[in-house]
């Protein structure tokens, strides 16, 4: 029989009559230009922060606003020499990468079980997992605030790591179960019949086939943890603050907003996200729907 996996989309060349094709291409250019303009409009507020990061304090506060100015890198130089900025970046990277790595291992095992064995209550557990991501964060801040106080978890890496693992699990389970469902059970059966262990099937047979799911789960959970503000603000502290919290606390740096600092830190915060979106655009849909909708844009 033929291989059960025909996943790669087959793109057929469009065959239109020449006159029709010309017509279509002309319209494409017009809508293309409008599309580009729309994209630039949506990006403008972020570009304005990029510009502010290259301005001096006086230029930022100038009125009327200066659209043309001599760019300077002194804000970034000042940013690097600020005592805690290195720590904020370390915390953001460490907490996101660390927790997501653990979450994906844990979620992959669960997703395999949900997909293959469908133990009693699978649907209910999947439902509960998803609903935890749909509750307003503010609702859970109070019990976490108190529990972290009792466990002495406040402002510790252990506490926040455990928290962010659970924060990343629902999305990871949903997305990985979707991908494992797409791998035929025939692979598992063949492996087991030929004497392979279940562990071999899980890690050597199925795992390589769901790599796109692993990448999507990894990238988007990193983004979600990188962006998380409320819990880091309430459960963290001077040792474990991440960049969003640093942005927030810098708002009232000595009474007034320190805009050069906010703009340069904001730029350093946005750029990695924009780069990730550029390279992993095809996973954006599955990422933004918590693993419930798959497809490409």
């Amino acid at each position: 029989m033929t291989s059960p996996i025909h996943d790669s989309p087959v793109v057929l060349p469009e065959e239109n009559a020449p006159s029709q094709r010309n017509d279509k291409e002309r319209r494409l250019t017009i809508s293309g230009v409008i599309a580009w303009i729309v994209a630039l409009i949506f990006f403008a507020p972020i570009f304005w922060i990029f510009l502010a990061a290259l301005k001096t304090d006086n230029t930022i506060l100038a009125y009327p606003p200066k659209f043309i100015f001599t760019p300077t890198l002194e804000n970034f130089a000042a940013l690097i020499t600020k005592p805690n900025v290195g720590l904020y970046f370390f915390n953001s990277v460490f907490l996101s990468v660390g927790s997501v790595a653990i979450a994906i291992v844990v979620s992959y095992l669960a997703a395999y079980s949900f997909s293959r064995f469908k133990p009693a209550g699978t649907d209910f557990l999947m439902f509960l997992l998803l609903s935890t991501r749909f509750v307003p964060a503010a609702a859970f801040v109070i019990p976490f605030f108190q529990l972290f106080g009792i466990l002495n978890f406040k402002d510790t890496y252990v506490g926040l790591l455990i928290f962010y693992v659970m924060f990343s699990v629902p999305f990871s389970v949903w997305i990985l179960k979707g991908f494992i469902d797409g791998v035929s059970q025939r692979f598992d059966e063949t492996g087991l019949v030929n004497g392979a262990s279940r562990a071999h099937v899980i890690f050597k047979v199925v795992l390589p086939q769901v790599k796109p799911g692993l990448v999507a789960a990894f990238v988007f959970n990193i983004i979600f943890v990188w962006n998380e503000f409320l819990f880091n603000f309430q459960l963290g502290g001077r040792n474990t603050s991440t960049i969003p919290v640093a942005l927030f606390t810098s708002l009232y740096d000595g009474g007034a907003t320190n805009w050069p600092y906010v703009a340069s830190l904001g730029t350093a915060y946005v750029l990695p996200l924009a780069i990730l979106i550029f390279f992993f655009q095809k996973y954006l849909l599955v990422g933004m729907t918590f693993g419930t909708v798959r497809g490409e844009v």
Partner: peptide
């Protein structure tokens, strides 16, 4: 409609960046 526009991927990146930011930073930028 414009799936053949030059630099579509970059344009989409610019378009999608606002939704990927933490709302806190959006509030700050605005």
């Amino acid at each position: 409609k414009s799936n053949k526009v030059p630099g579509r991927r970059l344009a989409l990146t610019l378009l999608f960046t606002p939704m990927i930011l933490t709302p806190l930073s959006s509030g700050l930028f605005w």
